[in-house]
Structures are given as structure tokens and as C-alpha cells.
Design a protein around this nucleic acid. Structure first.
Lengths: 143, 143
DNA sequence: TTATGTGCAAAGGGTTTGCACTCCG
DNA sequence: CGGAGTGCAAACCCTTTGCACATAA
């Protein structure tokens, strides 16, 4: 049995109107957005896209590592395009949502060291830092 | 209007069979457990407790800071009694759930430094490290 | 006694799945 | 054409809420 005919290379991806719209939307957004949010904006912008499709594509993009995901405490997943292929973390403003991508070789090393000293293998870690950004400290109202 | 009569001090807490059972269960568990899980174990142990009550009490305990909570990627909240009042993080085995409390002055300093260099204030952070513990690396089946 | 606590049943809310239809390649 | 992609509706799953009943103080 031939595993894959020359017609369909391993990860065949079709270009569809919906995918393009979603990718354009992601490219235009600076912060993390929920799937529902992105869908609503797409609809508002006149794009005919289903919520399921948005979920499907976001999941795919996330698996592929093309978008970052963050979990909110109320069980929502937020997505944002990576502007940086390498491993990194986020510093998020709790008021305006402004996000800064940060990388810290120090933490990476620390996490790996701690884990291996406890005899753990195949280690992954997540780090989220939230604070109030300078712009929001002085203005009590949301921008 | 008198805000509170002398009969009922601000945070009145009643001691009930259910609360005691839950607290005993938490005291006996070393790792993070889901509400459903704790409820199932209570039932299995013969305790007559409702799922709603478990949720109610866990929420209260968490607000009070008596238990730590962790969010899984599939939207579940896991609870565990705090055995350590100070700030710390967790190293969790993805197979058996074994948890090690870790503290890392290095990360704390790093997080604080990164945040302030970006002009953020009132910073909080979360760190979760997951890996496969030594006991689970060699045994493909779950304990 | 009485209001706090309990717990069943049902609603909520984000996400996934079933499945027939669409349309890219 | 043929199968990847789409999207409605319904299922899922964890969690919360409504409300009548139980019970600690």
C-alpha cells in the first residue's frame, strides 16, 4: 500500500475563504481574543463564517504552533498569533489586556533544573505574569 | 438600621457533617483533585454529600485561601489544601498526578524584574510545570 | 425557632461532535 | 470528481443557580 500518493502530500491544507478571513483577523489583532469574540468580529465585518469553523481552525493553528493560547480563569481559551516562533511567555495587563511577549532563558533553565532534580522527564511549563501596566495605573477607567 | 445584630457575627460558619467530611478528605489527599473526583471519593467512602455542596464548599475554601486551585487545560478546576502558606508553585506528573510543591526565588525575582522593566505594577504570576515522573516513565500503564 | 446549609433538578456557557452539504484542487 | 473543509444542531462537561427541605445554633 502506498502511504501517500503524490497527489496529496502529508499535511494537505486547503485555502478557504473562512481560513483566510480568520488569519487576517488574527493578524490584525494585537491581544488575545476568545474564539467567540473572533467569530463575532468576523461576522460583524461581513464574513460568512461558522462558529464551528472558527473553533476548528483555531485548534488546528494552536496545534501547529501558529497561535498562542491562554486560559482564563472562567474556562475560556484565548488565542493570539505568535509573533515569535521561539518559546516564550506573556506579561499581560489586567486592566487593558495589553500583552508583552517575554522570553527568559533563566526561567527555562530553572524549570528544567527543578524538574530533573525531582526525577521528572519530558517537561513542559507555562508561565503567566499579570500586572497593571503603567498606562492603567493612573487612569482608573478602562481605555 | 442595625447592620448586624450581636447574634450573628460577620462570617458565621456552621459545622456540618458534609463540611467535615470534605475537609477530612482534603486533609488526606496529597495531590490536586477535581470537585467531581472528591465528590466521588466521598460517596465511595459512604459519605452522604451532594455534588453541589462539594462545589459550594470548595469555592468558599478557595476564596478564603484555605485551598489552592489549579486549572487544567480542559477547563477543570483542581483543588488541594495548602500545606504551605508562602507563595509557591507546582510540579505535576502528567501521568499519575503526583505533585511536588516547589519554590524558586530565581523565578520570583525574574518575574518581578521583567514586569517592572516593562512598567507594570502590582504583579502576580503563575507557573505550572508538568512532566512525567520517574515512576511513570517506565510503566506505560497508569498506577 | 430561624436563617444557614444542603442537594436535586435544571439552566448556563464554552467547546466538541455528528453529519450532510460545499467547494478547493 | 473526491475528499478536505464547513456549519447547523445537538451533545458534552464542568459548574452554577433555583428552590424546597433539613438542621445547627
Amino acid at each position: 500500500m502506498h502511504m501517500s500518493s503524490s497527489l496529496h502530500p502529508a499535511g494537505a491544507h486547503r485555502t478557504t475563504r473562512q481560513k483566510l478571513a480568520l488569519e487576517r483577523m488574527l493578524a490584525a489583532c494585537a491581544d488575545f481574543r476568545s474564539a467567540q469574540d473572533l467569530h463575532a468580529q468576523l461576522r460583524a465585518g461581513g464574513a460568512r463564517v461558522g462558529l464551528t469553523t472558527v473553533y476548528n481552525n483555531l485548534r488546528t493553528l494552536a496545534e501547529r504552533g501558529a497561535v498562542d493560547t491562554v486560559l482564563t480563569e472562567d474556562g475560556e481559551t484565548l488565542y493570539r498569533r505568535c509573533e515569535n516562533d521561539s518559546h516564550h511567555h506573556h506579561l499581560v495587563c489586567r486592566v487593558c489586556g495589553r500583552t508583552v511577549e517575554i522570553s527568559g532563558p533563566a526561567v527555562e533553565r530553572w524549570a528544567a533544573a527543578v524538574a530533573s532534580s525531582e526525577g521528572f522527564f519530558d517537561v513542559r511549563h507555562t508561565v503567566e505574569i499579570v500586572g497593571t501596566c503603567s498606562g492603567c495605573v493612573n487612569s482608573p477607567t478602562r481605555p
